[in-house]
Structures are given as structure tokens and as C-alpha cells.
């Protein structure tokens, strides 16, 4: 083991980690947002739209992220979509994550007892209000553990962005490895960073879960 290389490469790796966190955070938020919109349109939209969205879900879930990213970054310019590496990476993460999030939201919505929606309908609440006041809050509670879980999976998908030269941690680690031949040290650092990130997310997730379910657990 030879740790002195980190004096030179440390700041670069930290910058890379910063980019990783940024990509993960943006990608997760955008993918979740798109997933939520898809789930709502699948629940309330007209039949052709629902069918189209189902095709989207199947195609994206059925192909590797790496391939999607290649198509977007290298194939995009052929149809006039010319993006820098970072925006392409974020768009890629958003598209890749959205069908999984859509499915998580769908099952969260399905977990809301029909009776609670009927109770709202019976007093004359509008469908928009029912979504806002009943379906979303209760559906999100049911979906939370799965949302956190998939967000954790997405942290590790960010390394694939290095393929299209997004300067995130994996990219910097590869660079350091090829320049110094310190493969083991560089990859150990990569592992440590990710482990720390994942651990933090899961802790925050558990706290959030405890917080939002505190009124929902029976304590008579």
C-alpha cells in the first residue's frame, strides 16, 4: 500500500465526490419527480396515455443504464440533441430512475385503503383535493422505504456517468489509477466514500420514516 499519492490526488478525489453527490441528488430528485408524474398519469390519464407510459416503463427497465447513456450522449447529436457530459448524465439518471420510482409510487398509491378515498368522495371532495390531501400523503408514507432503497441503488449507478466523462468520483479514481498504477488504493477510497454516503442516506431515511409514521402506529 502506498498512501502518499493522496497528497497529490486527494483534492481531485474530493471534487469528484462532490460531483458524485450532486449527480446523485439531482438525478434522484428529478427521477422521483418524473416517476411521480408518470404514476399519477397512469392512475388518472386516458387509456392510450397509460398504455404509452407502460411501454416507456418496460423499455427503460429492460435495458442497461450504460446503453441508455451511450444512446443519449453519442446518439443524441444525430437527432440534434447535443448535451454536455454533466447535463447528459443528469438527464440519463432521470430517465433511468423514473420507471422504478413510478412503480414504487404506484404500489404506494395502491396501498392506500380504498375506503379512505371513498370517504373523501362521499363528502363531495374533488379528485384534485383527494389526491393532494389523502392519496399523496398516505401513498408517500407507504412508499418511503422503497423510495429510500432505490435512492441508495441510484448512488452506485452514478459511477457509470464516468463513461461519458462526467468528472465524478469514479472518473477521478480511474484517472488516478492509470496515472499512478495505484489501483487498489484508489478503489478502496472509492468504496469508502460510497459506503459513507449510503450509510448516511439510510440513516436519514430511517429517521424520516419514524417521523412520518409516528401518528399512524396504533397506540391505544
Amino acid at each position: 500500500m502506498e498512501w502518499s499519492v493522496f497528497q497529490q490526488y486527494g483534492p481531485m478525489l474530493l471534487r469528484g465526490f462532490g460531483v458524485t453527490i450532486f449527480c446523485w441528488l439531482m438525478g434522484t430528485v428529478l427521477a422521483m419527480g418524473l416517476g411521480l408524474i408518470i404514476a399519477l398519469m397512469q392512475r388518472y390519464g386516458p387509456r392510450p396515455l397509460r398504455w404509452l407510459l407502460q411501454v416507456y416503463i418496460e423499455v427503460i427497465r429492460g435495458t442497461p443504464f450504460l446503453v441508455q447513456l451511450f444512446v443519449l450522449y453519442y446518439g443524441g447529436p444525430l437527432v440534434g440533441l447535443r448535451l454536455d457530459a454533466l447535463p447528459a448524465g443528469l438527464l440519463g439518471l432521470t430517465i433511468y430512475g423514473s420507471p422504478y420510482f413510478a412503480e414504487i409510487f404506484r404500489s404506494g398509491f395502491n396501498a392506500v385503503p380504498v375506503g379512505q378515498l371513498e370517504a373523501a368522495r362521499a363528502i363531495g371532495m374533488s379528485e384534485t383535493n383527494i389526491i393532494r390531501r389523502i392519496l399523496l400523503p398516505l401513498g408517500l408514507v407507504s412508499a418511503l422505504p422503497a423510495l429510500v432503497n432505490f435512492s441508495i441503488i441510484l448512488t452506485k449507478e452514478t459511477v457509470i456517468l464516468s463513461i461519458i466523462t462526467v468528472p465524478e468520483l469514479m472518473y477521478q479514481v480511474s484517472r488516478m489509477s492509470t496515472e499512478t498504477f495505484r489501483y487498489l488504493e484508489a478503489n478502496l477510497v472509492l468504496a469508502l466514500f460510497f459506503w459513507g454516503l449510503v450509510e448516511t442516506i439510510s440513516r436519514v431515511g430511517r429517521r424520516l420514516e419514524a417521523r412520518i409514521t409516528r401518528h399512524l402506529i396504533e397506540r391505544v
Binding site: 385503503p113 375506503g115 379512505q116 371513498e118 370517504a119 390531501r133 398516505l138 401518528h215 399512524l216
Partner: peptide, 10 residues
């Protein structure tokens, strides 16, 4: 009024 009450738990 429903058999299962159907109050909104949140």
C-alpha cells in the same frame, strides 16, 4: 358512515 370507519390516519 362506513363499516371500517375510514378516518384519514394522518
Amino acid at each position: 358512515v362506513f363499516q371500517q370507519f375510514n378516518l384519514w390516519p394522518h
